[in-house]
Nucleic acid binder design. Structure first.
Length: 212
DNA sequence: ATCCCGAGGG
DNA sequence: CCCTCTGGAT
C-alpha cells in the first residue's frame, strides 16, 4: 500500500472510532482556546483544564490579561510547567492583541505567529477549532509520533511533517486529523508502550518508529 | 542543540 | 530513578 492510500485508510478507520471528537481543552471563545493551547505545551490537557478556570476568573478577557501582574499570573499557571515563559508570553500576547489587532484574536497564520509563544502548532489549533480556518495541520507530540510510526513521514521536524501530511488529506479534514491522532495516540499508541496486539491499525502499520 | 520546568506514571 | 505530557525561542 502506498503512503497516500495508507493515510486515507488510517483516517477512515479513526473516523469510525471517533465519530464526534470532543475537544480535550475547555474553552468558550478563541482567546480562551489560545491561552489553553499555550499552557498545554509539555503538559497534560487535564492539568490545563484545572488552571484555566482560575485564570479566566481573575482575568476574564484579553484586556484584563494585558494588564496582569506577571508574578500573580506565574503563580496561577505554575503547575503547567515552563511557568515563567508562559506567564510572560501570555501577557505580551494579550498586550499585542489589544494594541495591534483591536482586541480581536487574529484569524490568519501570519498574524497569529507574531504573538509571543504562538507558533504553527498553536496557531493551527486556534484557526481550525475556533474559526474553522484550515491553513495547515497542527503537529504536536502525538501527531509527530504517530505520523512517523505509521510511515506517513520520514521526517522528525514538525514543520516538515506538516508539509508531508498536508497533501495526503483534503483540506476540510486537516482539523480532525489532529483530533484523531491525538486521541488514538493517547488510547492505543502512546510514546512508551503502544498496544500493538489490540490495535485496529496493526495490519497497515509499518512499525518503523516504535521505540524511537 | 539547548533551555525552559512542574506533575504524574512506571 | 527515568520518561512523558496536544511547544516555542534562542
Amino acid at each position: 500500500m502506498n503512503t497516500k492510500d495508507r493515510a486515507r485508510e488510517i483516517h477512515a478507520r479513526l473516523k469510525g472510532r471517533y465519530p464526534a471528537p470532543a475537544p480535550a481543552l475547555d474553552w468558550t471563545n478563541a482567546w480562551e482556546l489560545l491561552v489553553a493551547t499555550v499552557l498545554a505545551a509539555q503538559c497534560t490537557d487535564e492539568r490545563v483544564n484545572k488552571v484555566t478556570p482560575v485564570l479566566f476568573e481573575r482575568w476574564p478577557d484579553i484586556a484584563s490579561l494585558a494588564e496582569a501582574d506577571v508574578a500573580q499570573l506565574e503563580t496561577v499557571v505554575r503547575s503547567t510547567g515552563f511557568f515563567r515563559n508562559k506567564a510572560k508570553n501570555l501577557k505580551a500576547a494579550a498586550r499585542r492583541v489589544v494594541d495591534v489587532y483591536g482586541g480581536e484574536v487574529p484569524r490568519t497564520m501570519a498574524d497569529l505567529i507574531t504573538l509571543g509563544g504562538v507558533a504553527r502548532k498553536t496557531a493551527n489549533i486556534v484557526l481550525s477549532n475556533a474559526f474553522n480556518v484550515h491553513e495547515g495541520i497542527a503537529v504536536d507530540t502525538h501527531v509527530k509520533r504517530l505520523s512517523f510510526r505509521m510511515g506517513l513521514t520520514a521526517n522528525t521536524d514538525p514543520v516538515r511533517i506538516e508539509k508531508d501530511l498536508m497533501p495526503l488529506y483534503p483540506r476540510a479534514a486537516w482539523g480532525e486529523i489532529n483530533h484523531f491522532l491525538v486521541y488514538f495516540g493517547r488510547e492505543v499508541c502512546p510514546a512508551r508502550t503502544p498496544k500493538c496486539a489490540s490495535c485496529e491499525l496493526n495490519d497497515i502499520c509499518p512499525k518503523n518508529g516504535v521505540g524511537k
